[in-house]
Every structure is written in C-alpha cells, then in structure tokens.
Design a protein around this nucleic acid. Structure first.
Lengths: 412, 412
DNA sequence: CTTAATTAAATTTAATTATAAACTATTTGG
DNA sequence: CCAAATAGTTTATAATTAAATTTAATTAAG
C-alpha cells in the first residue's frame, strides 16, 4: 500500500464538492453562489445545484441580499446555525467542563461538574452523563437539533474506539466513553486526547485557522501536543503521538512519574514549577509567596506564583523563566522533528502568559538550526481555559463537514 | 483553510482511478484486469478502458496468460519496464553515488564519483552533471526513455525549489541542483533531503511498503529522519523536519557543531562513536584496535570499530552499546512525538547491525510509555548503502505514479 | 429617462466518465 | 460434449461536471 489512493467515483466527486461548498460557506459566509463558484473554481451550475440540496436539507439558509457593484444583487448564504448544535466536553483531573455551541462555534451554554477526589469507573461515567444531561435540561434547544458530543480527555485515548485507555490523573483504565454516551444519547460521539482535540479546535476556530501545519501544546499537569499536518489531525499508530511531556531532554535528570529520567514534564509542567518554588523556599529563599500562602507551603499554586512574579518576586520570576527555558528546549526538539509552521500554547500554564512565553521564544531563537526555524511563531491559544472544550466541538464539526473520503480500495 | 479540500471533477476522478490501477499493477503485477477490478472495487469496463489507455501509452504491457481455475485464462499485465527508466543520485560528503533503474526499481547501472576534499559550488555541480553523464554514456538505453533524475542530498534541502540550502559536510549554501540538472538534461528532476528520500524509498520498494506511518532514520555523519504519515512524505514548513541529530537529550551534555549542547548527534552518530573510542584509548584503555590501526589513532574508523567489536573487543562493544542506548533514548522521544508504526534504520552506522540494534530496541522497550509503543518495530533498511539512491529513484516514481491531486481550490 | 454595460443566477445543452447489464470468449471438470 | 466458472468486451445508461446561453437585476453614462 503506497499512499492511500482512493477510487474516484461520482459519489466521491459530489461529496467532495459538497463539503467544499459547505466549508466555504462556513468560513467565508455570508457568501453568494457566484462568489463560491469563483473561489472553488466550480462552475455556477454545479454550485447552484449543490446549494439547492443544502437548502432543502436546511443545512444552509438564504439570508439577505448583498451589495451590488452593478448588476443583480447576490443572495447571501450562511449556515443554518439554529438547526444544528454541538456539545463539547473537557474531562480534566478535577472537573468536567461542558459547553453547548452552535454549528459555527458560538458558545450558548457552559457547565462545570466537579469530579470526586477519588474517581472510579462508575463515578466518572455517571459524571460524564450528568454533565450532558444538565446541559440538555437547561436549554430549550430541541435535543434532535444537537448533532453530536465531542469529548477531550486527558491521557491516552483510543480515538477510533472512543475509549480512554489510560487517564493518569484519575488512575483509571479503559473507560468506554463513546459507547456509554452513544447508548444514553442518540448522537454522534467522538472522543479524543485533550491536546489533540485542542489542536483541532485551533484549526477550526482559533489561531490555527488557515495554517496547514502546526502543533498545539497543552501544558497543565502534563504536557501534551496535538499535531496538525496538511490540515489534518495526526494520531500516531498507537495514540501516543504528541506525548512530549515525556520527551527526555536531560538523560541524567530527575526521575519522572513515568519511570524515566529528565522528561520535559519534570521541568516545565505546572506541578514542576510549583515543586521547584517550594523547594527553593524550603531551602530558605525569601519570596512574596510567604505572605500569600500564610507561610504554608501546601498553599503554593501556579496562580499564586504567577501573581507573585507579576509583583516582581524574583524567586517566582526565575522559576517561570527556567521553566520557559526548558520548554524552549523541548519545543526546539519538536521544531527539529516535526517542523511546524506555528506552535500554539494552551492549558493551565498558558495563564502565566508573557512571563513564560518570553523565555520560551528566546530559547528557541537561540537554539533552532536555521533562520526560518528560529522564527517559528509561538503564540498562545485563542480560547484559554476553553481550548479543549472547543476542540471537542471541532471533533464533531470535522465529522460533519468533511466528506468521508474513506471509501478506500480494499486491497492496495 | 481547513483541510486541503479538493474539487471533484472528471479529470480528478479519472486520474485517481488511473493511478490506482497503475499502482496496483506496479505492486501486485503481473495481474489480470479482473483481479484489478476486484481489488480496486472498480467495475470491469472501467478497468478495461483505463488499461487500454495505459497499453496505448506503452506504460503497461500484456505479458502472458495466467492459470485458470475453470474459466477463461486471465491476461496478465505488468509495467513496461523497458520503456521507462529512472536515475537516482545520493550526494554524500565524500562521493556521489548514482544508479540507473527500471521503473520497477531494479538497478541496471551503478556509478560512484568521488568529491574533492574541498568542494566548491562549481566542483560540486560539475561532479553532479558528470555523474549523470557517465551513466548515460555507459548504457544503450535511449535517453528519451529515462524519465527523471531523483537526488538525495544531505543537509537542508528546499524540495520545492530543488535547492540544497545548506550542506554542512561540504560547507556549501544554496546550490540550485534542480535548475542545473533540468537545464542540462531534459528530464523531471526532484531534489530531496537524504533521510526523507530514503524513507520514500523504503515506502516504495523497501521495508516501509504497506506501512502507512513510519520513520526512516539515516545515521551517518549526522542523524536525519524521514517521516511518512498516512502514506505521504512529510516535509515540515521549512524543510527541517526530521533533523533529529540535533534533538537535545542531555541539556548539559557536550557541545555540538550546531552550537547547542547534548544533541543526539554528539552521542550516536558515526563520528561520535569514533571519537568516543579514540578518547578512551588515549586514556589508556586497551583494545584490539591498537593492532588494527597500527597504533595510529587517526586510522580508527567506524568499520574497524565494528570489526573489533565482532571479534569481542570490549571497548568497542561498549562504545556501540552506549551509542545504541543514546539512540534508543532519541527514538523513544520520537515515538512519544510522532508515534510511528515502524522505525527503519539506514546509513553508515546501520552496518554495525545487530550489535547496536540490540541496544536500541532494549532501551526503547525499557523507556516507552505504553505496551504498543514499547513494541514499535525497529528494523534495518532493506537497501543498506543504496538506501538514499533508491529513495532518489522513488522521488521520481512518486511523481509519475501519483495522480497530481494538486488542483486545490484557490481560496479555501 | 433611456440605454449600454455589468454582474448574478438559472437554464439548457454538451461532454465526460463510471456503472450496470448483457454478451462473447475461453477454460475446466465432469 | 456440456455445464459451470472465469475473463474480458460491448452497449446502453446514469451521474455528474463543463460550456454556452438566457434571464434578471442593477448601475452608470449619456
């Protein structure tokens, strides 16, 4: 099998053109038929007939007439955002965040359900169902108009089967999220690793729109990356692509929870920064944190460190800078491996914004091999804390708007 | 632009099916029309009519009749290997290796042209032209039947423009290889980084056939990787994807030629192993090498180290094992980032075969996060020293056999 | 105002290609 | 020698896109 070659057929041809038009309307709408024809290089009749079908299916609606520059006024088309809605869910280690959005990605409802300190398979699954149910109960939108539930889950996720294979922060294995949700609610369900979901979200709505190859980094308790190549989310063979938290950057470094030594995660994750600060304080380093935490080291959190750093606390500043430097080394490794056009950083640590970013970009600029590599854009996620949930929504949109080109030849 | 959506058209449909058939004949041939129809799910008439065109163009020929199991004997089709030939070239640091092959990848001619110790832009370009010319002079095959020249070049290569952007081992910049070859010889010319070319070679002819996602590692003076994802070669945004020789695995490690510290290349490349052994010997370690090199440390080479190791020399054995261990760490990082299904190792160091492979696989098994990741296949290249040249041939074949699905919509 | 030019959209007609069904050709096995 | 099986071709059809034409609406010039 060389290249996944597809069989050309009328069905395929039509479905390609339909999703082409649908995506143009989604991205560039309101837009006229004539403009669609120009952009897609499809002929007017082709556009007209496919649009007619989309109108009949109520996926697209005619809005109003646009401005004319001499000639008949164009009839503008948009997606029928009242017709279809999506639920996106972000399952973290402490809570489940759920959002309800229109098909264009506008958030309509928000909900957060806390997870118990010690989750079991049962409590987790019931919390997941509860999250969806509460969103459904809390809105007038007809259940039939909600087309799917996307789930972004931390840890290792089998996206084909929709199973959370291993959730390290919850100490759980093999949770069949897709199966359970599909049975309970009659909708499309897609489950994906949080970092990968996030990257799809940035591709569809965020800072990855228009970029065909970028990487999204989710820095929180762990560090995960989602890789978009040629406009497509890449999974890897066993769903562990992007596990850069366990990229070894110091072969003789400190021991990581995974058993190896010197993983990026031991230097640049949220907990790593907190630990580092605590350690320095125990060694007698003075810091504004002493006041903020009332002398109790257990109260040190990422947020407080960021706050203290902003107030000029030098211990916290250097801790963040150090983390940024290590992150910079990790990202340089990533640039030298995957060479994305852009790197988007999201998740908890991204809240520490500029302080850490400065240090990251500087390190990359210093260490990358070539000029263009040095200039790899490194920016923050557009959605902050909602990045994974938005990504979960994008999982469903990708399913809807992408012609299922999966009719591969059986044997090649 | 979300996803590179294509416009469906008759041309596209036909070209998809033509390359589908062509590829099936290439891979599974000799094969009958009926069998092609079965495998591709195309209908018999579609296959017949496309095959008729291919026969007329003399790209495919009817060979002989196959065995029947009750029914009309099938007419078997194969590629017309006498009609089309390809030149593949591997530009290394010491010499240029050139091969002439049939369209099916059988090597017909071999040539090696040494490069001067100090290459200049002019000497390199004339050596390249000379290499092609000598192959052409040395064969009866009509020049018109040679469809293209593929070039695998070490260093950073702009594959779009066909320029060697930076060749570290030759200390040269911006050599317009494609332009010069196209002007001199009237053929398709494709230039690519050696590691990436190699991976395409493995995909088309070697140990990557049938694998949709794998990584090929070229270990020599440097360490480069070619990444195949979804059956496609991935370049990265600025042609430095796969530069894993400069992946930092020991942030406080020894200085690399690139200016950073602790790059994989400083531990696991050919020169790194040689240096390590020399250093140990200078420190007074005894080794079989003392005899083999007649006491002159300058004579130590990778080949001799391997030889000594095979003879049981413990210094050399540990040096190789150590290199393998570092390589294993690098590959584990790669697995946790790209998560390929298979890793194929080629280039100079691969000659040290099992001794180093053992150590690599063991390290990966020890350090990878999940069971499937631990079991990532790590094998040697099928073509040994010819791997890059074969890859260069594949560059041309990919051009020929892949329907140019590049008619993207302009604006999306 | 009127008219020509311009643009948008729809319609008609033509061309392209895959597909379905029917058919011919060949071979094997009884 | 005949039935069954397999290979390949022919013919007709259907599904589309492509090209050309028509209709409609609007603007701008005179």
């Amino acid at each position: 099998m060389v290249k996944n070659l597809l069989r050309g057929s009328f069905k395929l041809m039509k479905s390609m053109n339909r999703s082409l038009i649908l995506n143009i309307i989604r991205e560039k709408g309101p837009i006229s038929r004539a403009e669609i024809a120009k952009l897609t290089k499809l002929t007017p009749p082709t556009v007209s007939s496919l649009v007619k079908e989309l109108l009949q299916a109520e996926i697209v609606i005619e809005r109003n007439l646009g401005e004319s520059s001499g000639g008949r006024k164009p009839t503008l088309l948009t997606l029928n955002s009242k017709m279809f809605h999506v639920i996106g869910m972000d399952i973290g280690s402490q809570n489940i965040k759920t959002i309800l959005t229109t098909i264009t990605g506008s958030i309509i409802k928000h909900s957060i359900v806390p997870l118990p300190a010690e989750s079991t398979r049962e409590t987790l699954l019931s919390a997941i169902i509860q999250s969806v149910q509460s969103i459904l109960d809390d809105t007038e939108i007809d259940e039939e108009k909600i087309v799917g539930i996307g789930v972004g889950m931390h840890g290792i996720v089998d996206a084909n089967q929709g199973i959370s294979v291993f959730a390290p922060n919850l100490h759980l294995h093999n949770i069949p999220i897709k199966e359970v949700l599909e049975e309970k609610f009659n909708m499309i369900v897609k489950v994906e690793n949080d970092g990968r979901a996030m990257s799809l979200g940035e591709l569809w709505f965020g800072n990855g729109a228009g970029i065909d190859s970028f990487v999204c980094i989710n820095v929180g308790r762990g560090i995960g990356a989602g890789i978009i190549m040629n406009g497509k989310l890449y999974h890897g063979s066993h769903f562990i692509s992007g596990e850069i938290g366990h990229m070894v950057i110091d072969i003789d470094g400190p021991k990581c929870t995974c058993g190896n030594y010197g993983c990026l995660q031991t230097f640049a994750s949220g907990p790593a920064i907190v630990d580092r600060v605590k350690k320095e304080m125990r060694l007698g380093q003075s810091s504004l944190l002493s006041q903020l935490t009332e002398g109790n080291l257990d109260n040190v959190t990422g947020e407080l460190i960021y706050k203290a750093a902003l107030d000029g606390d030098s211990l916290c500043r250097t801790a963040l800078q150090q983390a940024g430097r290590y992150m910079g080394v990790g990202l340089t490794n990533l640039i030298h491996t995957v060479n994305p056009r852009r790197i988007i950083i999201g998740g908890g640590v991204s809240n520490a914004g500029d302080l850490i970013m400065e240090s990251i970009t500087q390190t990359v600029k210093q260490r990358a091999l070539t000029q263009p590599a040095k200039e790899t854009e490194i920016i923050l996620s557009k959605f902050g804390d909602d990045a994974t949930a938005m990504g979960a929504v994008a999982l469903i949109l990708a399913e809807l708007f992408t012609s299922r080109n999966t009719e591969t030849a059986s044997a090649l």
